[in-house]
Design a protein around this nucleic acid. Structure first.
Length: 294
DNA sequence: AGCCAGGAACATG
DNA sequence: CATGTTCATGGC
């Protein structure tokens, strides 16, 4: 009998909004949204992988372990982190009142949580893949990498993947990656990041020790291929730094332009002045602005 | 055809 | 430190 468990949903949480974001029109190879549920393969459990299906039932999330041996606590911990279930987002609504446009935006998508990418290696690779290309193509590149060297499980005729490890990424040569439509720079940057992981130069443990976000960003940016945008993306999506801002981000620039009804993209100074009003909620606001784009 | 895309590195003031 | 240039590969 497969394991099934229930996680009470917190206040100010909308599973529907989270599900919407997970399924916002791009072909993500690391989860499937169907009906009212999301199914994802995780690198947890004593025997490698565990396949989870999450849906909503009353005032709780219902989680079914479709495959694997994960313990209940591991599952709950993962989902809690992934969907930010423990986050207290009530202050966001309060602070957003300073700006009428933002207040409206936050109200519109209220309950959406900043969905994370808990695996540091994955988020670094994904942000490198996403540099300066449109998201449709970025998801395509990610899929080709994952399908080439990532592990997978099949369930009811469908294949579910996990993101490869650094060692697995290194199985692909520079030329392999180029044949998969990776640019030379992306191929090189992926190798650099994978090798930095294997060498222990970068790890969640190391980064988590850092108190300030600037210190963390500086450490990340010491890697070739990781600039300000990528470092902030990683800080926001994996390390959950609340004050991370993806400066230069095409989506942020366009979203802000739209939010403010401007006929041009904002300058950096304008963005800085805007975010100064919401200390501690910058990352969440960026995420909500991304939500508004689709 | 041409501009744009969830940029980074490098060179120059 | 601030701005400008180049690289790179598709999507639309």
């Amino acid at each position: 009998m497969p394991l099934s468990l229930s996680i009470p949903t917190p206040e100010n949480f909308s599973f529907k909004e989270c599900l919407w974001f997970l399924d916002r029109g791009f072909d993500d190879c690391l989860h499937k949204v169907k009906g009212g549920s999301v199914t994802k393969l995780l690198r947890i459990g004593s025997h490698g992988h565990s396949l989870l299906s999450i849906s909503e039932s009353g005032n709780a999330l219902r989680v079914d372990l479709l495959k694997g041996e994960a313990r209940e606590s591991e599952i709950v911990n993962y989902i809690t982190e992934w969907l930010h279930l423990k986050g207290d987002v009530a202050p966001l609504k309060a602070i957003a009142r300073q700006d009428a446009d933002l207040e409206q935006l936050v109200e519109k998508y209220w309950g959406l949580r900043l969905i994370s990418i808990p695996d540091l290696f994955e988020v670094l690779c994904w942000s490198i893949i996403g540099q300066q290309i449109n998201l449709t193509f970025a998801y395509k590149l990610k899929r080709s990498l994952v399908e080439a060297v990532g592990e997978s499980e099949t369930y009811e005729g469908e294949v579910y993947h996990v993101f490869p490890t650094p060692k697995q990424v290194l199985e692909l040569s520079f030329d392999d990656l180029k044949a998969m439509q990776y640019s030379s720079q992306k191929a090189r940057y992926l190798h650099i990041v994978a090798e930095a992981f294997l060498a222990g130069e970068i790890s969640v443990e190391k980064l988590s020790l850092m108190e300030s976000t600037p210190e963390m960003l500086k450490c990340l940016m010491s890697l070739k291929g990781v600039g300000e945008w990528t470092a902030n993306y990683v800080a926001m999506k994996c390390l959950r730094r609340p004050d991370a801002i993806t400066y230069g981000d095409a989506g942020l620039l366009n979203g802000y332009k739209y939010l403010k009804g401007m006929d041009r993209k904002p300058t950096r100074q304008e963005l800085e002045a805007f975010f100064e009003q919401f200390p501690g909620w910058e990352a969440y606001i960026v995420f909500y602005i991304w939500r508004s784009l689709a």
